[in-house]
Structures are given as structure tokens and as C-alpha cells.
Design a protein around this nucleic acid. Structure first.
Lengths: 112, 112
DNA sequence: CAGGATCCATTACGATACTG
DNA sequence: CAGTATCGTAATGGATCCTG
């Protein structure tokens, strides 16, 4: 039994599902696995996302201690996002999602 | 490059994210990994989900060839859902989500 | 550059009642 | 039992404009 932010979870998998229950958070993690990124870089990586939504998702991930936000006192401003240790461990999840995507495409799509 | 259902994907991970971009599909898979299930069993497993949404998600998963729906001509009706071979392979993803949830709870929650 | 503030459209989801 | 149908709400996300 787990207790987290005022919620109870019977199983640890529910915790993960509960955090990543939207379209974008895992995508952000995916691109942060490449390297630390600035706001604009992320926004170009995930080019379907709006600024507003990206801002929101970054804030949520920071609150949940999954990414870190660093502000550099420069002009123009520079803000760098990176994965925390626990955030970095999501690479195992994403690796399996990557693998499964390939398998799924083999059966149901075209690869070229 | 992948081509699937009229959409292009640069990376296989996007395929997976695109399918499981809602709150419930992965939960359905999770409970089907235990064993084949009837509609009512799933609805009791995931007790926060409404009938309507469960129906919808099962339909979507069936269309995507991830689960199989079998109807038995009985009274009262019996419908059994099971994972297809590709659906079964999601266990690797879910296992990593399970593991990550534990790690996350260790740092950010209470376990008891 | 890195957002904040508004306004608006979509859709996801839930509650309830009903059916073969 | 396994859904459908309908209605209503809440959450999500997008477009645009603005600022330190």
C-alpha cells in the first residue's frame, strides 16, 4: 500500500499511470533523456505542443520532483530543464515503450 | 520512419504514446495480464471507471488489435476479453512502470 | 528568451436510465 | 450480463497577445 500526496494506491503501477495520464509528460522526459534542454528546444522537439501546455507540464513535472529547473541570470533569460535521478530512471519505461512501438508497427503499419 | 493509420511517426516511442495517451487503456491491459476477463470483472478491477468509458476503451483497444473480444452465445450473455500476442508484450512496459512507481514512492511517499 | 494572461474549442469522462 | 443512449461537466489543449 502506498500513500502519496493525499492519495492511496494499491499498486505501484497506479502511481506511474496517475502521473503520466496525459499526452505530453512522457514526451518531455523522452527529449530530456537526450540532454538537458532549454524551453525553446523542448518546444521545437515536441512541435505539436502549445507554449501554454508545455509550461504547465514542465511545472507539474518539477512539482513532482521528476525534472529540475535552473534559471541563469542572463539577458536574454536562460532556463535549463534536466532530469532528476528519479526522472532519469524513466528511461527504462521509455525504452520498453520504444521497443513495443517497433513491434506494433511491424504488425500493423509500414516501416520505411 | 513509421506509417500507421494515416499518420507518420518519426520514432516508435511516439506510436506507443499515441495509443496510450488516456487514463485507462494501460490499466485495462494491466488487469488483462492477470487473466482473461469479462466486462464486469474489468469494471470491478478498475472501479473508478464508468461503464461508458470502459466500453469505449475496450472498443479502441480491439480496433487497434491489442485485445480480443469473444462473445459466447449464452443467457445471460458472456463476453471475454483477452490480450492478443502484441498486447501481451505490453507486460514489459508495465513491469517497468511498476518498478518505477516503487522507486518514486520510496522517495516521495509513504509505503505501508 | 521564457514565459503569463485570456479566451475559446474540443474531448474525455461521469452519472443515470434503459435494453436484448 | 454486457452493454446503449443521453445529458452534462470538467479537464485539456490551442491561438493569440503581451511582458521582464
Amino acid at each position: 500500500m502506498y500513500y502519496l500526496n493525499g492519495k492511496k494506491y494499491k499498486c505501484s503501477v497506479s502511481i506511474t499511470m496517475d502521473i503520466f495520464n496525459d499526452r505530453w509528460k512522457l514526451a518531455v522526459i523522452w527529449y530530456l533523456l537526450e540532454k538537458d534542454k532549454r524551453f525553446k528546444e523542448l518546444s521545437e522537439d515536441i512541435n505539436e505542443i502549445s507554449q501554454k501546455t508545455l509550461t504547465l507540464k514542465l511545472k507539474e513535472l518539477e512539482e513532482k520532483n521528476i525534472i529540475k529547473r535552473e534559471v541563469f541570470a542572463e539577458v536574454p533569460p536562460k532556463v535549463v530543464y534536466s532530469l532528476t535521478p528519479i526522472g532519469l530512471k524513466l528511461k527504462f519505461v521509455l525504452k520498453e515503450m520504444f521497443n513495443w512501438g517497433i513491434e506494433y508497427a511491424k504488425e500493423n503499419g509500414k516501416i520505411f
